[in-house]
Amino acid sequence: MLTMPTPTILIMTKLVKNTLDAILLLLGVSVVVFSLLYLTPGNALLIQVGVGSDRVLTESYQALFSLNTSPFIQYFEWLQGLLRGDFGVSYVYHAPVFTIVLHALGVTAVIASVAMVIAVSVSLPLGLYLGSNGSQVLRTPLTTAVTLGVAVPQFLWGILLLYLFGNVFSAFVPGLYVPLSSILPMAAAGSGSHNTIPALAYLFAPALALALPAIAILSRYTYNSVRELNAQPFMLALHCRGIGGWQLLRRHTLRNLLVGYTTFSGILLIDLLAGSVLVEYIFNIPGLGNTLVTGIHQRDTLLVQGAVLYVAFLVVVINKITDGLYYILNPKLRRS
């Protein structure tokens, strides 16, 4: 008869399993992406040379783009590079993929985080208010206003906010991205403090454009869930027992709400982190979305592989976190 494994071993096994799953997923994604890029007509050399150049396509020129190597070897070599920590050099930017993606990810991550903070801090209270109590008068205009966030196509929001912050408020020049780092004083050039407003505005405006649809989706979900919850008999029972207001909210409403809310937020966060292509294009931000699009249009295989790997990794992490949250929040799901 087997004795029960100790908790440590259980946790270790789980950890190893999860890591293996994660690695398998990352491999799967990279294989699919590589194949898709390979099967899509066109290659980086062709696109660089274009129509007007009379540069000769010598063997060594072609070799720079791994054009004479079979796709299997290319993929295998890429894997080998990964193990060494080498993500390769981008065909388009002539710089290490690792550096480019890290930088782009940094830019996108900051904007995505701000967007998420805006979305959650607006949608959660709003949804709770509308679902629990909500004056009839306010409910309709509020729900409509909120729904507009998702009804208006994202690139329209982008253009509107760019115009609002750039031309109406003159907080920045549209299209001239001001990174947060420019707020830091430069040694020789003097203080960078005059960059504070443009940099912050250039962070807030695109984040808002990204947050508006998220607010719409999350508010609606919260509102519906709360109404559904409040309709349940146990809520009435609690109310009769005299539990109301904050306590009810904290102990019961939120607990039941948060499972689904977290799922939605997780998915939205993943979308945001992958970089919103349209918003980044309109605001001219060097984020992950723009980088990925450039990479795909120019068939920069190494850049796309690197960027997708990062995003896939984040997807795995976020999924694991949301899964974990299910277990914490919904006891019914816990199994020994």
Partner: peptide, 26 residues
């Protein structure tokens, strides 16, 4: 279960532009 989760997660990890471009090009 594993396979389906795998497929779903993989699809989620692929940038939609690449997916759309590949589908449309091919």
């Amino acid at each position: 279960h594993k396979t389906i989760t795998f497929i779903t997660n993989t699809l989620m990890g692929i940038p939609s532009l690449l997916l759309a471009l590949a589908v449309v090009s091919i």
